[in-house]
Design a protein around this nucleic acid. Structure first.
Lengths: 145, 145
DNA sequence: ATAATTGCAAACAATTTGCATTCAG
DNA sequence: CTGAATGCAAATTGTTTGCAATTAT
């Protein structure tokens, strides 16, 4: 997935509405998140620095927060380490194996039923893509037994 | 919930089988986790230090890891901060509101259907109590609209 | 021009590691 | 006794903050 001209224009005008400015760094971070699909702030930083080594990790953090507020990216907590960011629209549920740490992606709609139950019984609006589900993957299950 | 004589004996013999030793610190940490129901390493540390101020946080971390390997405690990732530990058997699914950060506990069996699907379709054995589900709670939903 | 944005250094929180000391068996 | 476990200080990792310098408009 690549950042299109359209998306850049949209970003620029969204920023403008809020008295914020379009900068090369913001484009680079958005590009990186879209190119990498899933990535920690650290990884985004490395990717951005391939083209522009002067960009500081502080800016990466600030820009990721900003893009998240604007609804352009989201983060999920996969396992123990740093959160991973992905572009809006690129959403799925993460299955994390707590034995081998492999991450598998499955469609969000697997959680539709659960989301319905939580909504009806608890008034809770589930955000399926935000959190990883933990368990044991097929390979590790086989190995165990 | 309190640590019983029986549980201590069980811990001691489990440790012994692996060439490990029973120590006051290990008892104190297990006691704390059971007493607190849900707690971060930091909170466990504070609680242990109420009785024995000399116990170091390093030992808390090491002991929590150990108790988890022995299957006596588990940790879950609730929201962004530190993980929270709870005693084995004290399990539920956590609903975390990403607006107000409130945590609600709901029974694990809500995930039974999902667990079945994941097992059948992906060979993934879901561990329901390990992860918090993120979303928006009733109160924040009402406030929003 | 001037307010927003950045880079840098330093602070911070959570966790881990190395090592000398202590203690359970 | 002897190896396992602890405490302490220091290192690491992930993230945030304060502030002066820069830059988009």
């Amino acid at each position: 997935m690549e950042t299109t001209r359209k998306q850049r224009a949209a970003l620029k005008s969204t920023l403008h509405q809020r008295g914020m400015r379009m900068t090369p760094q913001r484009q680079l971070v958005l590009d990186a998140v879209m190119a990498l699909e899933h990535s920690t702030p650290e990884q985004v930083c490395k990717h951005v620095q391939l083209t522009t080594p002067t960009v500081n990790i502080t800016t990466i953090y600030r820009t990721l927060d900003l893009l998240e507020q604007l609804g352009l990216v989201r983060h999920a907590h996969i396992g123990h380490g740093a959160p991973t960011y992905s572009a809006h629209g690129h959403e799925h549920v993460h299955l994390v194996c707590h034995v081998c740490s492999e991450v598998e992606e499955v469609p969000c709609d697997l959680l539709d039923d659960l989301a319905g139950t939580l909504r009806d019984q608890y008034g809770f609006k589930l955000d399926a893509s935000h959190v990883a589900l933990s368990g044991t993957c097929r390979r590790c299950l086989n190995r165990e037994s």
